[in-house]
């Protein structure tokens, strides 16, 4: 879709309210019967996409389950290298971001653009905080001690011969989750930019807000399971 620059002089002088991307003026694609049908289709599509994401993570959870079943000692020993306090903090950060993004959808539904922008900003700050905690307090110190996956493993004080496998599952699981954090944050940034620039979302047009929010909730859902599985083993 061609994006239209709100600052172009050839637009009507009435300002943002008459802008084609302003939510009141949004139409729907020609092959749908009405905007509602389009909204439902987009949402259905997003839910289907979320199922694919869940099954993607199912592979990691499966590897986790199998190796935990085969090598429980390695998993216990490996988990002791993780600090539940950072994991718990990150859980809280993500839960709050999930709440703000849900509130953001609500703001869009109510037509409160300022609240939408506020909520999205808080969500993005939470996303940044999550990544920061993950990197600064978890990945970097651990990697510098040699607690790394597979052949990169160089930590001399391992308790169990399968600890490198634990680290493989840990880094792949949290790494792919972190990738999803970035994708979700990217989507929300896109929504935020359009909300700020065009007031693009309102009671009759908030598909993009809703679907991006669904994606962000998925990031939270995955972490809800990853957190106890990785941090709370004993």
């Amino acid at each position: 879709m061609a994006t239209i620059d709100a600052n172009k002089p050839d637009l009507p002088a009435a300002g943002a309210k008459s802008h084609p991307l302003y939510w009141k003026n949004r139409g729907f694609a020609h092959h749908f019967r009405n905007a509602d049908e389009q909204f439902d289709a987009c949402k259905l599509g997003m839910w289907l996409f979320l199922t694919t994401e869940v099954l993607l993570f199912a592979g990691i959870f499966c590897a986790y389950a199998i190796f935990r079943m085969l090598y429980p000692e390695a998993w216990t020993a490996g988990s002791h290298h993780l600090d539940w306090r950072f994991g718990g903090l990150n859980t809280i950060v993500l839960l709050i971001s999930s709440w703000t993004v849900a509130s953001g959808v609500r703001s869009a539904q109510l037509g409160n653009n300022a609240a939408l922008i506020r909520n999205l900003l808080i969500t993005l700050v939470c996303a940044a905080l999550f990544v920061f905690i993950k990197l600064y307090f978890e990945y970097i110190p651990k990697l510098s001690m040699g607690k790394a996956p597979g052949t990169f493993f160089s930590y001399p004080y391992a308790h169990d011969p399968h600890e490198p496998l634990w680290w493989s599952v840990y880094y792949i699981g949290t790494g792919i989750h972190a990738l999803h954090v970035f994708i979700g944050a990217g989507l929300l940034t896109w929504v935020l930019v359009r909300a700020i620039k065009y007031e693009a979302y309102g009671p009759t047009e908030y598909t993009m807000v809703e679907t991006s929010a669904l994606y962000w909730h998925l990031v939270d859902l995955v972490w809800i399971f990853l957190f106890p599985l990785l941090y709370l083993i004993h």
Binding site: L56, G59, G150, H162, P164, S168, Y171, I176
Partner: peptide, 28 residues
């Protein structure tokens, strides 16, 4: 999606030898 994660793990296995599928590192 499952083949997605499988092949991704295979790529990691090949590039970084993460060991999940490698008996030499305890994998299966």
């Amino acid at each position: 999606p499952v083949i997605g994660i499988t092949l991704l793990l295979l790529i990691f296995e090949r590039l970084f030898k993460v060991g999940i599928f490698d008996p030499g590192l305890g994998g299966d």
